[in-house]
Amino acid sequence: MMVPADSQWWFETVGEHFPDGREADGLAEFGFPEETMGWTVDRLSSGERQRLALLRAMAREPSVLLLDEPTANLDGAMTEVVERWLMQAIRKRGMPVLWVAHDNDQIHRVADRHYRILGSNLELVDGSH
């Protein structure tokens, strides 16, 4: 399952995008009130969309995750909140994740292994630690 930096929303309300009958984890941690599920999609800001897109993907219980700049539209404090929540959820489920990022500090915080794309080659920067 992949979460792109720019998410699409096709139903009218936020809740319709989540699997039926499941309480979405992480709403409160990401700073959303409970009635968020009833919000219409067009009132969401880009940062809210990005956070909700992460929750939406996690609620579908992926077995492997590809994250493309999951914190691109978030400010510093929220970035750390999201990182922490994601790391916790990923560790808990023991899920392999490919995390694409530009921010070197973030890579150091979250990655077990760090590859860099150079031209058309993949180069190992940092092994497991």
Binding site: M1, P4, Q8, W10
Partner: peptide
């Protein structure tokens, strides 16, 4: 016209 939405839904599995 809705290609982005379709792609995104495919991405979500």
């Amino acid at each position: 016209s809705q290609r982005a939405v379709i792609e995104n839904r495919l991405m979500l599995g």
